[in-house]
């Protein structure tokens, strides 16, 4: 393992920003830290970089404990959300700043700066002032500056957050290409679930300073472990209820008993059901189906989102694909159903 975090805790006053967090990152891996505000994801990055000291726990980089090292002595680099480009230095001087600190000779420095700028598509921008660049160009300078020292580990704090939507997707692809090219491990903090799923080899979901789920994007999306992950990733419906002891799951909110494909643990109190896995039926006369009234319809471009009230009072988010024709009207009664495999029992 390149980086290994063991029992990391950090407290700010009364709030526990990191709560005995364990996490290992392999060399060359792209890991995203996903979480809402206050989940501790940014704190975790700052603790790894050395800007905050952990209260307890270990940070091992290639087996070496980083805790006693100040930020400037840690062999990793960080890309900041605001990019943090030095306004008094040119683009080239910004990029060569770290090389200069390492005592790299001038001609070698110039060569590597040129190389790094070319890598991010900014050839010939070296003489400019960072303040005269567009947001996307500044983002690239920050990336070049962080990568020019060829770190084995790069920390990225919301690197796409300040870009507009179109640029964000393209830059995301470029980011991943750069990661493959350099072979560095990337740990990227984001609050954007699509970004996290699209870019990462593995997604780590944080909540309240704890790691609540860790896995490949598809696994985390398809098999959310907790209510929080189910809701945070893709806005799954969380159906509260109790196992009926015969392989079913009583869900009073829907007024039916759910029939999951997998065995339900006796202490399970909720199942996740993704909006896009729910289909329209002619009649709600089979297992895993129900009748409901459409309370609202929202057009989202590639599909529509229906809010459907079940007879038991639960309000479900239901996807309605464009190719299924116009969505039902508000106030109409519809029958909905899903495959047994769409139901995911949640742990907590």
């Amino acid at each position: 393992m390149l980086l290994s975090l063991q029992g990391l805790s950090k407290r700010f006053g009364a709030t526990l920003a990191l709560d005995h967090l364990d996490l290992a990152v392999a060399a060359g891996e792209f890991l995203t830290l996903l979480g809402g505000s206050g989940s501790g994801k940014s704190t975790l990055l700052r603790v790894i970089a050395g800007f905050e000291a952990a209260d307890s726990g270990k940070i091992l980089l290639e087996g070496r404990d980083l805790a006693p090292l100040p930020p400037h002595a840690r062999p990793l680099n960080m890309m900041f959300q605001s990019y943090a480009l030095f306004p008094h230095l040119s683009v080239a001087d910004n990029v060569s700043y770290g090389l200069k600190r390492d005592g790299v000779a001038k001609p070698e420095r110039a060569r590597r700066v040129e190389q790094a700028l070319a890598m991010v598509g900014l050839e010939g921008f070296g003489g400019r002032s960072p303040q005269k660049l567009s947001g996307g160009q500044r983002q690239r300078v920050a990336l070049a500056r962080a990568l020019v020292k060829r770190p084995r580990l790069l920390l990225l704090d919301e690197p796409l957050g300040a870009l507009d939507a179109n640029l964000r997707e393209r830059t995301g692809f470029e980011l991943r290409a750069l990661q493959r090219e350099t072979g560095a491990a990337f740990i990227m903090v984001t609050h954007d679930q699509q970004e996290a799923l699209a870019l990462a080899d593995r997604v780590a979901v944080l909540e309240g300073g704890r790691l609540v789920q860790l896995g490949p994007p598809r696994a985390v999306y398809d098999q959310p472990a907790t209510r929080f992950v189910a809701g945070f990733l893709g806005g799954a419906n969380v159906l509260e209820g109790m196992p009926d002891g015969q392989g079913g799951f009583d869900c009073p909110g829907l007024g039916v008993t759910l029939r999951p494909a997998v065995a339900i643990p006796a202490d399970c109190r909720a199942c996740a059901l993704r909006p896009e896995r729910i289909a329209h039926l002619a009649h709600a006369d089979r297992p895993n189906s129900f009748d409901g009234i459409v309370e609202d319809v929202a057009f989202r471009g590639d599909d529509s989102l229906l809010l459907v009230r079940a007879s038991g009072g639960a309000l479900l988010r239901v996807g309605h694909a464009e190719e299924d024709g116009p969505p039902p009207e508000r106030g109409s009664r519809i029958a909905l159903g899903w495959e047994a495999a769409a139901l995911v029992p949640l742990h907590s």
Binding site: A49, G50, F51, P70, P71, H72, A73, R74, N77, M78, F80, S82, A84, F86, Y97, G98, R101, D102, R145, K149
Partner: peptide
Amino acid sequence: RDPVLEEAAADLGATPWTV
């Protein structure tokens, strides 16, 4: 002044004096 600039300098290997 923006404290993040000083953090960025430290992250790139600058000692407190150099920062």
